[in-house]
Design a protein around this nucleic acid. Sequence first.
DNA 1: ATGACCATGTAATTGGTTACATGATTTA
DNA 2: TAAATCATGTAACCAATTACATGGTCAT
Lengths: 181, 181
Amino acid sequence: MLESIALGMLLEKDLTGYDIKKFIENGIGVFYKASFGSLYPALKRLTEKGYLTTRDKPQGSRKKIFYHITEEGRNQFFHWLSSPMDIFEGTNTHLAKVYFFDHLEAEIRSQQLLEYEINNRNYLKKLRELEKGFTELDNKECFYYKLSTLYYGICITEETIRWCRHIRMQKPLTDLLERER
Amino acid sequence: MLESIALGMLLEKDLTGYDIKKFIENGIGVFYKASFGSLYPALKRLTEKGYLTTRDKPQGSRKKIFYHITEEGRNQFFHWLSSPMDIFEGTNTHLAKVYFFDHLEAEIRSQQLLEYEINNRNYLKKLRELEKGFTELDNKECFYYKLSTLYYGICITEETIRWCRHIRMQKPLTDLLERER
DNA sequence: ATGACCATGTAATTGGTTACATGATTTA
DNA sequence: TAAATCATGTAACCAATTACATGGTCAT
């Protein structure tokens, strides 16, 4: 996963490990996190496999290693990019918790759900600010899909908030599916 | 995570490791998977920590170990259950892929997205069937929250399908947020 | 000169996975 | 009697995390 993402970040220009981390944070940080502890070894592996080459460009006495994607690296990346997309299979800690909420005291339960709703509202605010920054640009066609992931985040977060409010108030579950709003 | 879930499954009655796996599959299998390779060691750890006790009840010559949750186990579980819920921090492979779709040939891209939409539709069908099975029961109040996770799955999957169709047709992204439908 | 940021890396640990190994019981 | 399911477990592996370790550069 991280290997593919690192390759993707190097498609357009050579970057250092530190840069790649930044690109990941700013680009897909909303739904993907990488730590140096996993990134640097990943870059090493990619280099060993021949998907990347390195160029040392120390600046003053500061170490700096630029990574460059090779032709095989590109192929590998596009192979990953073209591989089938199954439905989301990840695990969701929060849902696992809610599953057991019938056993929890009503007070703690509603406090938990309220907190969750608030966290999601704050998150949504953050996403909306990111969106605002983008809508002001004019060459949006060039990164329609990049932007689409941000919109996915917004839609899903809004839906999560709706769900949260609904079950916090213990409204009938079937009502959740009839949305006019 | 798995340790907490295993404790939760043992709240009501003693179960074997095999049973717990079944309970996980039927209960939260929709958003959480566990393998024997992680479950059995987890049960061992929980026993070592004093959260579980074991009772061997071989049936015929078939080995069978029932796990029983202790008072400390219960405390531990409720501690987890009451711990704060941050927003979803997990990583989503699919979004990571879509992020790079601007680089992909239009044909493969739309094929990928269509496939993803179809997978989600099938998944939604499955969830709706599960839901049907539950709505026929009468004591729904007893597991409102258990059921709520299923409804969350349905809502999010519907939203994912809506998003998918929208970006497949390359409609303006801002339209995604104005929903009358 | 202090703190924020740039920059690379390792070590210990976590929390899983898949594949393997074994064998009993039930059902078609 | 064969296949499916019940039942427990280990070993090799994987992909990540957190914490640690080191040191340079830039702005205040």
